[in-house]
Amino acid sequence: MRPDPAERIDARAVTVWRLAGALNLFVPAVAAGGAIGLAAADLIPSWAAGVAIGVFLAIAVLTVVVVPRVRWLRWRYEVSESEVYLLYGLIIRTRTLIPMTRVQHVDTKAGPLLRAFGLSSVTVATAGGEHEIPALADAVADRLRDRIAVLARVTDDVV
C-alpha cells in the first residue's frame, strides 16, 4: 500500500478558509434576518424564525469553525522527481497521481484573501485538466512551482 503524501499545506489556510466561509455567510445571514423581520411583522410564526436562526447558526458553525479545520487536516501533497501526489477531501477522500512527464505547465496564483496572508496556491496543468494545491506560503509555493517546472521539463514528451 502506497504511503500517504507527507507534506501539509500552510496552517494559515485555516484562517483564510474561515474568513472566506464567513464572507459566504452573507446570503444565509440576509435570509435569517429576513425571517426575523417577517416574524416581527407577524407574517410567519415565530418558531419558523427560530428554525431559520438555528439553520443559520448550524451553517455558520460548519463552514466557519469545523470545515476549514478538517479540510486543512485532510490535505496532503508530495512532489517527487517523477510525480505529484495529492490526498484531499473532507468526506470523499481523493488520491490523485500526476506523472511528472504529463505536466504541461505550473502556475502560482493568489487572490486578495490569500495575498493578505502571504499565501499562494500552485496549479499543475496537464492535457487532461488542472490540479490545485491550495494555500502554501509564498516562498514555499514559488520553490515548488520552480521545482515542478524543472522536473517536468526534463521528461518532456507528451501529446
Binding site: 504529463r102 492535457a127 487532461g128
Partner: peptide
C-alpha cells in the same frame, strides 16, 4: 494517462471499495 485518482467516501471505506478516475487529453475537452 494524464492523471489517475482513487476516491473513497466513508461508506465505500467500510466495504473496502473506491472509485477509479482516469483523465486523458481529448478534443475539444479532456
Amino acid at each position: 494517462i494524464q492523471s489517475v485518482a482513487v476516491s473513497q467516501h466513508p461508506l465505500q471505506a467500510i466495504a473496502g471499495l473506491g472509485t477509479l478516475v482516469v483523465r486523458v487529453a481529448s478534443s475539444p475537452q479532456p
